[in-house]
Amino acid sequence: MEDIFSRTRMLLGDAALERLRKSRVAVFGVGGVGGYVVEVLARSGVGAIDVFDNDRVSPSNINRQIIALHSTLGQYKVDVAAARIRDINPECIVTVHRMFYLPETADEVDLSVYDYVVDCIDTVTAKIELIRRCHRQDIPLLVCMGAANKMDPTAFRVSDLAKTKVDPLAKVIRRKLRPEGIRHVKVVYSEEIPMKPQFFETSDSNESLNSPKKNIPASNAFVPAAEGLVAGGEVVKELMVES
Rank of each mutant, 00 (worst) to 15 (best):
E104Y: 04
V117H: 02
V117A: 01
I121F: 05
E91H: 10
I139M: 06
I121L: 10
V94Y: 06
V94N: 07
M151L: 13
Y101T: 01
K150V: 05
A148M: 01
D107L: 13
R136D: 11
L111V: 04
I131H: 15
S112E: 15
Q137C: 00
M145F: 09
L141E: 03
H97S: 13
P90S: 10
V117I: 05
L130C: 00
D138Q: 15
R132P: 12
D107R: 09
D119P: 01
V143G: 12
P140A: 00
D122H: 02
P140V: 04
L130D: 00
R136G: 11
L130A: 00
V124H: 09
T105S: 10
E104V: 09
V94A: 08
A155V: 04
P153D: 12
A147D: 07
L111M: 03
A148Q: 00
V109H: 10
C120A: 09
I128Y: 10
I131E: 13
V94T: 11
D110T: 07
L142H: 10
E108L: 14
C144A: 10
D119M: 04
T125P: 03
Q137E: 10
A106L: 03
P103F: 02
D138G: 14
R136K: 13
V113R: 15
R98Y: 14
A155L: 11
I121C: 01
F156I: 03
E129M: 05
V94Q: 08
D107P: 09
L111F: 13
G146A: 06
I93L: 08
V109N: 05
G146E: 00
V96R: 14
V113Y: 14
H97E: 11
I128R: 05
E108M: 13
F100W: 13
R132Q: 14
R98D: 11
D110I: 02
E129P: 01
D107V: 15
C120Q: 04
M99V: 07
Y101W: 11
I139S: 05
D122F: 05
I121P: 01
P103H: 02
I131Y: 15
V124C: 01
S112I: 06
A106C: 04
A147E: 08
A126R: 06
C92T: 13
D122P: 00
D107H: 14
E91Y: 10
V117W: 06
P140H: 01
V118M: 07
I121K: 06
A155Y: 14
Q137P: 11
A148H: 00
V124D: 05
V96C: 12
M99C: 08
D152M: 11
T105H: 03
K127D: 04
C120N: 02
E108G: 11
V96F: 10
A155M: 13
T125S: 13
D110R: 09
A147Q: 08
R136H: 12
D110N: 14
Y101M: 07
I121A: 01
D115W: 05
E129F: 05
I128Q: 03
T125K: 13
A155C: 11
D122I: 02
E104W: 07
A126L: 08
V109L: 15
I121G: 01
S112N: 15
V96Q: 12
E104I: 06
D110L: 07
V143N: 14
E108H: 12
V117D: 01
C134G: 04
Y116D: 01
C92E: 00
P103A: 07
N149Q: 04
P90E: 08
P90K: 08
P90F: 06
M151Q: 15
A126N: 03
